[in-house]
Design a protein around this nucleic acid. Structure first.
Length: 433
RNA sequence: GGAGAGUUAUCGAAGUGGUCAUAACGAGCCGCACUCGAAAUGCGGUCGUCCGUUUACGGGCGCGAGGGUUCGAAUCCCUCACUCUCCGCCA
């Protein structure tokens, strides 16, 4: 969501930005907004003049009524009645025009950061840096569900019967490992100065539309029947939503928070063959980090945020790389975004385990998250950022594949052992494939 | 889920159809005066948002949210949200 004043004064820039994102079908929206905006201000001028007049008259009528001059009051009443129709007409048009503006503004993309590589889809994302050696062992790495089964750690069949495709039962050591990763990630972030939060797992529609674009909403969000409530797709939603309509004193910034939540996603669209198992599911758990900061600090926080995820994965000896999202792969609210990918020795390629985004003032504008300057004289929109710390089901894939030994056992990295009751290695319950 | 009471500026709170909505009254905060300094006291200032002319102004909207009645709504009516108390139910 961009500022309509900015659009008014920089329409070419806004159009250029749309082209960069290969969303040319949205180009006409810019001039449409400008037309509607012009009309909107004309309406306001006429409407407000009429309202001022009628306020004035109402006061006069009040005075006359008090003095008992009913006849004189009646004359004024009749005069006001004459404007009533026009006022209603203008108010109606104002409403329509503002809806037209807002509908278009909601889909005009945020101005992307100049550093974002230009490309039309995720195939043109750009690798930035690798951390750790992507090792390919000399034995075959089974599919992650097979590894889990060797520990009697997963039951997808029963989950299918109970909830359908896209759900899972994790069991035993695998379930424990899942919890251990979450707990470790939580403490990892607390250690980096973030405040731990457990947020609501459902949010109202006004928060939903405040934190994400329509496309994302349609593809992701589950609605609760008969209620104005949606299951969160990530705790970012309720964490950013927490600041709706708030004016935050500048001294309190930056707000650095880490939150735990289950995440619910429709995952509309085709699922590839490599997305079986727990890779792409309707429900998973995630440790998230969000930052609300001053605009000039958001690029700095962006760098810090993704670094946290890289460090977390490296502390568990999992090779990762960072990948910058190109313009066409960037959701409309995002200024810049970077994926963290973990190494899959089975697929011999990296796959996404986290996503770090700078939303600029887009969410803040929609949700009215403002900052009051230290001297109290000015107010401005905050910047918001979010990043995955870790989403265990998906990270378990990377974990199991990278720590699997030739004998089918899985070693537990030092940092996780305290969360696993001191366990150093998981021994298969039955022979793996 | 049922019953009752609430929601007004930074906070407490008055206001039940019209010169009481830049909001009484009290407190906090900022400035000034008084003071060697402080306290006390006195005076002044202490919302948001939009439109228009732009050092400054003028106007619209906002009393939990959204509708309605009226020339005029904080006040009357409807719907909804939230808070508190009691009951029920539950972890």
């Amino acid at each position: 969501m961009i500022d309509i004043k900015f659009l008014r004064e920089n329409s070419e820039l806004v159009k250029e930005n749309i082209r960069k994102k290969f969303e040319d079908h949205k180009l006409p929206l810019v001039d449409e907004v400008i037309r509607f905006d012009l009309r909107n201000r004309e309406i306001k001028q006429e409407l407000q003049a009429l309202q001022a007049k009628s306020n004035q008259m109402a006061k006069q009528i009040g005075g006359l009524m008090k003095q008992g001059k009913k006849d004189e009051a009646q004359v004024l009443k009749d005069e006001v009645a004459g404007d009533k129709g026009r006022i209603a007409e203008l108010a109606e048009e104002e409403k329509t025009v503002e809806e037209e503006i807002s509908r278009r503004m909601m889909v005009i993309p945020q101005i992307i950061d100049p550093s974002v590589p230009i490309g039309k889809d995720d195939s043109e994302n750009v690798e930035v840096e690798r951390f750790g050696d992507p090792v390919v062992p000399d034995f075959e790495i089974p599919y992650h569900t097979d590894i889990m089964e060797s520990f009697s750690g997963i039951d997808l069949e029963a989950a299918g019967r109970v909830a359908g495709n896209g759900f899972y039962y994790l069991m035993g050591d695998i379930a424990r490992l899942h919890s251990a990763v979450i707990s470790y990630a939580r403490d990892f972030m607390i250690g980096r100065g973030f405040t731990y939060v457990v947020p609501p797992f459902m949010i109202r529609s006004n928060v939903v539309t405040g934190v994400m674009s329509f496309d994302e909403m349609d593809a992701m969000m589950y609605k609760i029947e008969g209620e104005d409530l949606y299951l969160i797709g990530t705790s970012e939603h309720s964490m950013i939503g927490r600041f709706i309509d708030q004016i935050i004193p500048e001294e309190q910034l930056p707000l650095t928070l880490t939150s735990y939540s289950p995440c619910f996603r429709k995952e509309k669209g085709a699922h590839g063959i490599e997305e079986r198992g727990v890779y792409r599911i309707h429900q998973f758990e995630k440790q998230e980090m969000i930052v609300v900061c001053r605009p000039e600090e958001s690029p700095m926080w962006f760098e810090k945020l993704w670094q946290n995820t890289v460090d977390l994965f490296r502390s568990m000896d999992i090779p990762v790389r960072t990948l910058e999202c190109c313009s066409g792969d960037l959701a409309d609210l995002k200024v810049k975004s970077l994926d963290v990918e973990a190494w899959s020795p089975r697929q011999k390629k990296y796959f996404e385990v986290g996503s770090c985004s700078n939303l600029g003032d887009a969410q803040a504008r929609r949700l009215k998250i403002r900052v009051k300057s230290a001297d109290g004289k000015t107010k401005y929109l905050a910047h918001t950022l979010n990043n995955t710390v870790v989403a265990p089901p998906r990270m378990l894939i990377a974990f199991l594949e990278n720590h699997l030994q030739a004998d089918g056992s899985v070693t537990i990295p030092e940092v996780l052992r305290p969360y696993m009751g001191g366990t150093e290695v998981l021994i298969p319950k039955k022979s793996g494939k």
